[in-house]
Nucleic acid binder design. Structure first.
Lengths: 207, 207, 207, 207
DNA sequence: CATGAATGAGTGTTCATTCAT
DNA sequence: AATGAATGAACACTCATTCAT
């Protein structure tokens, strides 16, 4: 009765492989059309199967986004935690976080778009409380880094921390909406230019 | 609770007044829940009438967002055009545009949120071609101002114009998602701080 | 408080006059678009008033068709009864009934179309039992005339009376669907040609 | 009551079979209650499924009538074309056309009723232009046959061709409204009696 | 008489989901 | 793993009807 044949050896795209494929497909469609506006059939069409067949792999439409978003966030926080745990100064920390953010956009573009557009609505559902918690963690993280940077005289002493935090947070993620992997600039290069802009400003140096 | 008011000067809330009220209500709901996820009944509930009654005032759900967005954009571009037509230098132009943007957020908060979140999806409909055209106009506008600013030595000569344009565009509008009229900072004050950050950067002045 | 001004003298189009006008308008719209597919607003539009205003004159959409159909049938049966009561032979009776039918089409074209298309559905409602009764009366009437005509050797003795009755009944009324008052042929002339065809047949005389 | 049958030979009621079943059911309901007055749920009830389930098989209510009517007309014109192409004299052509018409009523009773009652309204929709074209083709066909018959001295020379054409056309189709397959007379027998009536007239032979 | 705004039941349609095969 | 057919709740929208003005 169990549909499992053999153990692990077979083709590369076994069990978990198919799941991952389907999640990637679903993420693209959600990102392109919006979660609420996407039908399960559109996802299935994009995957080349029939609507009902998705339910062999997933419990519900909700559980699909859930898996997309939590995979992305787990990965992201693992990198962030690495940066935060490595004892860097405030400015280097800030730069590393921005770089890791753009790398995350590179690896999880569709998921970031979904996160950016839908997490406000989704986080009302019990299942998605972790989304709200993640936003809170972001906020604490950025504020700490900024506060520390001011203390360390790395950042200007007159910064409006709550305001700057929001701009950092949003400008980074909003880039996912136009970023195309393999485009003109690689993720790290975008991060570098972005950092120059944010750190030094866009006006010509005053002498 | 009653949809009728008679205090604020006779026929103020008649005819067009009711329409405007309903549009404001609808905009709030769309902004809070997303266009696709909002039901017509939710809008009606928020307005204190029944679902079907909305159709006395509007043709369709679509025509409601249409009116919300086009009203906002008409107003915005009228202000932008005034700025652009007043012969300012590139830097003053850029500052004025940012200020007008934050003022628009103040006047049309909900509409801006909708514009930001939904215009990509909506602009596929024939009726909403003006949304795409507006994005294009934004792009040309910002690029011109930035290019001119570089020529006038107001902005750094090494700016990546396409990149900076995206950041300016997005960071301004994304503020609508957290801005609350009557909050800690007035729109003009937010604009001032935002400009300082963007123009001078956040790092401590190097001596 | 009473909206009635003056007594009867005034313009020709008082009370009852307006009613009749509205009924004529409604009949045209029902005939053109079908009863179920016609909205009350379409009738009101055609009459140059607003939807709700019709309810000053009539109780309901149903009562409008009711009045249209019963007016027509009352008029029709008054004429038929005159013919049937005048002691004519079967053939002359048949001819007179056909002529009166075409005249009724001339006077009540729209009502006949409605009667033809909708009475089957309408007669299920309690209010419209008279429609079914009218069909029955038609049937008895035609059968009697045909039976009598056979006995009097006016009609062929091998007629299939039930069948001929249906053809007479339907062919007469169905003419309402293409008849236009003021067209090529007047009602009486159409009746004459129709009678020739039905009585003598269309094949060339055999000698 | 079960929509599944398994007696009549294996996969007979699969795929296309189910579609055909549903179309037949829908045709009956449309014929009985009128197209506009029929709700999709009524059709579904009659088929023993839920309203929404119909949309697995059909795009819309409109596409259901569309398929009913076009199937009928395709079949009808195939037979007519066979008659018209077989080189018969005018009178035999006319008789064959009448016979084929009554046979079509026998095979497609409900569709004919719908065609008769609704095609005027439906043909305003772009999708149903073929209905108007079919009426035009009928008209040309009957006029040609009648004209030819007069030339061949098969029909009376004083026929009012446009008038006779309408009576032939309508009297034939209107029979669908009372015809019941398996009733007193078979389709061919009705056709025979109808032809006698139309060709020879109903009056007693004059000597 | 007529308007303007609303009601509320119902309509066609969509869609996440289920399940026997 | 996937299909095909169905479910059933919900949705945008319509429309006959009401009623204060």
């Amino acid at each position: 009765m169990s549909p499992r044949r053999r153990d692990d050896g077979g083709t590369a795209a076994t069990r978990a492989g198919r799941r991952t494929e389907l999640l990637a497909t679903a993420a693209e469609v959600f990102a392109a059309r919006g979660y609420a506006a996407t039908t399960v059939r559109e996802i299935a069409d994009a995957a080349g199967i029939l609507g009902g067949s998705l339910y062999y792999h997933f419990d519900s439409k909700e559980s699909i986004v859930d898996e997309i978003l939590s995979t992305f966030l787990d990965d992201l926080w693992a990198r962030y935690d690495e940066v935060l745990g490595s004892g860097l100064g405030a400015r280097e920390t800030m730069e590393s976080l921005v770089i890791e953010s753009f790398r995350a956009i590179d690896r999880h573009r569709a998921a970031v778009v979904i996160y950016q557009n839908e997490s406000r609505h989704l986080s009302e559902g019990e299942r998605f409380t972790y989304l709200g918690e993640s936003w809170d963690r972001f906020e604490r993280m950025w504020r700490e880094v900024l506060d520390r940077g001011i203390k360390e005289h790395a950042f200007r002493s007159d910064l409006d921390v709550p305001l700057v935090h929001r701009f950092l947070r949003d400008t980074v993620w909003v880039a996912a909406s136009w970023y195309r992997p393999g485009g003109r600039l690689a993720a790290d290069e975008i991060a570098r230019r972005y950092l120059t802009m944010v750190l030094e400003g866009i006006q010509a140096p005053q002498e």
